[in-house]
């Protein structure tokens, strides 16, 4: 029995899981970024990423190469994220949390509708960012696309880490997230930091979307909805207040979901998400703040 076990398949499926998990991790990080500064899960994050992907599609359609379109879309998404915060979130900055949550749900419909409005709902394709050729490592064949996705995801995470840890802007962003009132007293323009956070989150979502789309045979406006679900689940699994936790949580989830889909027949594709959520729920019952989240002391 043990001899019959196919280690090659396990390695391949793990890499495929990491590739998907990496793209979820980017969106999960975007969620965490906004959650840490405003205490709200942005339900529109996935749709914003989808919208970015459609912008990239249009740019490529007009003759740009994939990577030209990639970086131009990043810039547009960043500006768009900042603009959305200014116009839509700023007015409810001081409203109850649930009100802000509903606003992001409204934003979900708005962005989704805008994408269906501007681009008709026929399916389309994005060229591959990486070669589709397989590469053989230690006798096991992997797809370059999967390895590329993992590399880009980790690269973006590293860049973000550097931004937060080693720059003055990053310090101000962290200060804002940890205590906005105190931050204003040292002269940080807190309100703009929140907008900047939205811009960064939008750009990260854009990366996630632009790498998710080429892997699919075709995509439409529903592109990022499952990704958002997995990203949310991954972020909560890792601890929604911890960026590191969100990345690890999403990667773990990616591998886990792919492996149970492969090895447990009755789960198939339909039940992957429910089973994953059930496992997460189990984890949360043991560790209510997620794997890496710190339980914050509550004021009585």
């Amino acid at each position: 029995m043990l001899l019959a076990f196919d280690w090659t398949q396990l390695a391949q499926q793990t890499v495929i899981g990491l590739s998907a998990g990496g793209l979820w991790a980017l969106l999960a990080l975007a969620l965490v970024l906004i959650y840490r500064s405003t205490g709200v899960v942005n339900f529109a994050q996935g749709e914003m990423a989808m919208f970015s992907t459609f912008i990239a599609w249009s740019l490529i359609h007009h003759g740009l190469s994939y990577w030209q379109a990639f970086f131009l879309t990043l810039a547009i998404s960043f500006a768009g994220g900042v603009a959305l915060e200014r116009v839509v979130i700023r007015p409810v900055e001081r409203a109850p949390v649930l009100t802000v949550v509903i606003v992001t749900l409204g934003l979900f419909f708005l962005v989704d509708g805008a994408a269906r409005w501007f681009w008709s709902s026929e399916t389309r394709t994005l060229p591959n960012a990486f070669s589709t050729r397989p590469i053989t490592v230690a006798g096991v064949a992997f797809s370059i696309q999967d390895l590329g996705n993992i590399a880009v995801s980790l690269g973006v995470v590293a860049l973000l880490f550097a931004l937060f840890q080693f720059t003055k802007l990053g310090l101000a962003l962290r200060a804002t997230a940890s205590n906005p009132d105190e931050s204003r007293l040292v002269g940080i323009r807190v309100s703009w930091m929140l907008a900047l956070g939205w811009g960064l989150a939008a750009a990260m979502g854009a990366v996630s979307g632009m790498l998710t789309a080429p892997a699919l045979a075709s995509f439409d406006q529903n592109l990022m909805q499952p990704v958002l679900l997995y990203a949310f689940a991954g972020a909560v699994l890792g601890g929604i207040s911890s960026p590191f936790g969100a990345v690890v949580g999403a990667l773990l989830l990616g591998v886990f979901v792919n492996l149970i889909g492969t090895y447990v027949d009755w789960i198939g594709t339909d039940l992957r998400l429910p089973v994953a959520l059930a496992v997460i729920l189990g984890v949360l019952l043991v560790r209510p703040a997620g794997l890496f989240g710190r339980a914050s002391a509550r004021r009585v």
Binding site: L171, A172, R174, A175, S178, N179, E182, S183, V186, I188
Partner: peptide, 18 residues
């Protein structure tokens, strides 16, 4: 009056933020 999640050095750097 400190940002408790940040380090001492980071707090000092924030003082000179502007």
């Amino acid at each position: 009056g400190t940002l408790s999640e940040l380090s001492v050095a980071e707090n000092l750097r924030l003082g000179a933020y502007v």
